[in-house]
Amino acid sequence: MTDAIVSCRGVSKIFGSGELAVHALREVDLDILSGDFATLAGPSGSGKTTLLNMIGALDTPSSGHVVIDGQDLGSLSKAQLSDLRLNKVGFVFQAYNLIPVLSARENIEFVLELHGLERDERRQRATDILREVGLEGMEDRRPAQLSGGQQQRVAVARALVSRPRIVLADEPTANLDSKTTEELVRLMYRLNREMGTTFVIGTHDPRVMEHSKRHIELLDGRIASDERTG
């Protein structure tokens, strides 16, 4: 037995039907192991986002099985999928990650509220994690008052604050310049090393892949290569 956090077996995803059917994923077998810092690359339309959505319990496969921390997604209700995401998965999306009416700290506290944490504990953890991602002093800013890079740091902080088993990031650097990209990737890499958090990052960006310890390449909905480098 491996210590796989997520395992995909024969996962296919078909969007639409008949003539218009799109095979976004075809028979994918994949295990994400605890401590992985993996990048998921491939041309546009190769199925990166679709696969990340499966791994993150945002979507369920058309056929095959996705098992997250022992739970098969196919057997779960919508509400159970919500709980699974809340407890096991952190997300960083390409853009619009934050709730615009909440400050950086409140965006993070919001997730802790969903976890039912008490006010003092929420405050403490939000403050700590924001310091961790280098946003000390910006806790009370709203997303609109933060740069793109700072917003993504808040998103990373939020993804991490509930100590999930796995953090999924779909093109987190797509809207960032190279310096900010570098900083964000270093941040995630450091968190992976220091806290042991598992990361899977969908990306086109060579600067992101540089740091990866595992490089997965998708092509036409199939895994073309899967190499460990670290």
């Binding site: 945002l58 709980d83 995401r85 998965v89 997300f91 619009y96 709730i99 615009p100 969903l114 939020r158």
Partner: peptide
């Protein structure tokens, strides 16, 4: 719409 999707992605139940 996008925000409600985000909230659900973060683990907020539809009922909430």
């Amino acid at each position: 719409t996008h925000e409600f999707g985000l909230l659900q992605a973060l683990g907020m139940k539809p009922r909430l």
